[in-house]
Amino acid sequence: MSLAEGVLQLIEDAARREGFQRVTTVWLEIGQLAGVEVEAMKFCFDAVTRDSMAAGAQLEIIATPGTGWCLPCGETVELAEVYGACPRCGGYQVQVTGGKEMRVKELEVA
């Protein structure tokens, strides 16, 4: 539940700061390696926001690709899984460099 609760907290903080009453759309940036199940997130978000200022808001997910730095190759490579092998050399000495983001990017408010 609580990633969705974290999203709601950021929304409520922003509302206090910016003085809006309702949120109609929420853009989340979720990296492909963040381990967030998008469908689960949507489901939890709906449950968590039911009686809040974000009730009924649309959740838009912006998926960012997974990238890693392969030590043997000395290059940035695309990564499908956190523990995945380097697509170039097949080795596992790959450090994740991108795709772990979980951010609230933008809101459409009223």
Partner: peptide
């Protein structure tokens, strides 16, 4: 600090957040 766009013609507007969901934790 978030920066907000100027309100458009409708009452709706965009608010940029750019914050990590786990920032508070």
């Amino acid at each position: 600090p978030a920066h907000s766009h100027a309100p458009g013609t409708s009452a709706k507007r965009m608010v940029q957040i750019e914050q990590d969901i786990l920032a508070k934790n």
